[in-house]
Design a protein around this nucleic acid. Structure first.
Lengths: 349, 349
DNA sequence: ATGAAAGCGCTAACAA
DNA sequence: TTGTTAGCGCTTTCAT
């Protein structure tokens, strides 16, 4: 294995000079720089992460993690748990992760800014951020207002084209919709009738993309399938009142084979559906694996399939990317770390 | 973050003593040992892997990786590629991985021993082994014959109860069979007729377990499903000659909904099946994702589903476990690192 | 612009 | 049985 010492010896310079070249710290004579790079290349130098990791301790790195803390959004709790777990590992490297919980739904940029104002103290300074894509733009705006320097930002769960973005970790929602369609086709010999349900007002980006993906895939591959209806039944408050209407509607569509439940909020709806008498058993496809109740319903096949997107990775990977970047000087391999979409049924939960 | 230095200061001893206690090297007065452990506990000491990794360089660790090199077994090539990739990372830590290819099918213990005899030189000494479960027992026998000391062994792909075993990395084949059954049920409203095919003489452990799992799951959950036949069509040489007979047999079972192709060897059989005229389209379930040809057939739905078991993890994880153990002194978390079973269709390849 | 030296946490060889 | 020391690869500070 080749070390900086070897390169320094070969080039007849000090290790400090090699360090300056290989880490682009400047202040090196151009001819030496060139020679050092050539030698590094020739010898196949690869930095030892243990050495870097050890030296990085002196930087006292701090990473901020902004997450949703809300029992009604357990997907985000899974993200948080995974992040916390990895934070313990990072602590062993002398890196501190500071967690900032967002507890309520936030509507717009100004509100985010006010939230950050109360949430994030001026000190200690944070060297890098992991943040929900939803809030990334506001965060960067606010950091600029505070007038501190540029810091890397990794977004997760939703993408954002915010400045300072280093990478995004999350799934491809359109592909998730396409996958749901593939599953529906599998279950119905490519000729099923589908009803799409979502508990949102029809303006949530991730839901919209999933539905688009579903429709696109159906157009591309399964001409004999049909979407009978798309029902959006609004926000949480309305749920109980709407349940009756909803069931009535479903009974109308007596020929339905599959319900794609995009954004249920409350999984008890699946219980209702599974108890309803219909000419043949309706199969339910959901997303993610969130509550114990939902898990149970997949186990006993009241929910036929659920399509998951690795919440653990969404918690862990952003921290990993930031650590590699800040402590080891490694650029991310890609700008989009896709989480895998998995098909889960009773036998592979 | 707490370091050994902190503990040494608190206990009023030297760092060497702390090291001896915390790494069980012995030769420490019992009372001091006790006190040091207590302090470590109290302070929440967690070793810094960067420090350990750096110090481990001096050990010049060598890990042996025994794998199948055979174009007809591309699953193992995927294992190998992943192992090689990780070996490059390990090289950065000063750890060398030595690869030993097994190129032909090996029947019994004596033959394995002869193979190792020619394959593995006496030097350099290897500090730990990653090996196919199939060959693990023979390897350990042979290492003992050579009279070198105990070394840790991690098995992969198949489990083995060999001595010196540190951990096993691989899937649960029974569960894979159960999962295949769940998928078959999904596609047939839990009342499908299934034919099980395998290109082995009926005595390969992994195939046998998958089939058992399939049958068990059917008994447990899907009384209306039926296994029409189980056909084992022998070894590679017989394949071409048997194809005609096989197709004839399938036509007899004209009511078949699903073929579970356990161990195909040659995926062109799927082409044949998809071209055959049958009352309704037969759906094929395979295992793993191996050849480009197979990939293509999943994409265009000639194969409905394939159930994968993470070959990359089987290549990488054994090395990771050995590195953690040898270089960082970390015991494995578990004796069985299960690879995930994933359901793959055209939309999530 | 360059080099020398100290130090990050841990281990191993040697001295006491 | 215990302490001391040097060194793993890399970064940073300080002197030149």
């Amino acid at each position: 294995m080749v070390t900086m010492k070897d390169i320094a010896a070969e080039a007849g310079v000090s290790r400090g000079t090699v360090d300056r070249v290989l880490n682009n710290r400047g202040r090196v004579a151009p001819d030496k720089e060139k020679r050092i790079r050539e030698i590094a290349e020739k010898l196949g130098y690869r930095p030892n992460p243990a050495g870097k990791g050890l030296a990085a301790r002196k930087k006292q790195l701090k990473i901020g993690f902004i997450y949703v803390k809300n029992a009604a959004a357990p997907f985000h709790m899974a993200v948080y748990r995974a992040a916390q777990e990895y934070a313990v590992e990072l602590e062993q490297y002398g890196v501190e992760v500071l967690f900032f919980p967002v507890t309520r739904a936030i509507e717009n940029n100004e509100e985010w800014i006010r939230m950050f104002e109360t949430l994030i103290p001026a000190r200690p300074q944070i060297d890098g951020w992991a943040v929900l894509g939803l809030a990334a733009d506001s965060l960067v705006t606010w950091l600029k207002m505070r007038g501190e320097g540029t810091v890397p930002v990794v977004t997760y769960n939703l993408d954002s084209s915010c400045e300072w973005k280093l990478a995004y970790v999350g799934c491809d929602y359109r592909q998730a919709g396409r996958l749901a369609c593939g599953v529906a086709s599998l279950m119905t010999d490519a000729q099923g009738k589908v009803c799409i349900l979502s508990m949102d007002p029809g303006n949530i980006q991730s839901s919209a993309e999933r539905i688009e993906g579903f429709e696109d895939e159906m157009k591309d591959r399964y001409p004999d399938m049909e979407i009978v209806d798309k029902i959006f039944f609004g926000m949480e408050g309305y749920y109980e009142s709407v349940k009756g209407d909803l069931m009535k509607k479903l009974e109308e569509y007596s020929g339905i084979d599959v319900i794609y439940l995009v954004n249920p909020g409350d999984y008890s709806i699946c219980e209702y559906i599974s108890r309803t008498e219909m000419p043949h058993r309706v199969k339910i496809i959901t997303n993610d694996l969130i509550t114990g109740e939902q898990w149970e319903m997949v186990r006993n096949e009241k929910i036929a399939v659920t399509i998951c997107q690795e919440p653990e990775k969404q918690g862990r990977k952003p921290l990993e990317i930031l650590f590699d970047y800040l402590a080891l000087g490694r650029e991310p391999d890609t700008a989009w770390y896709k989480t895998e979409l998995s098909i889960n049924i009773a036998q592979n939960l």
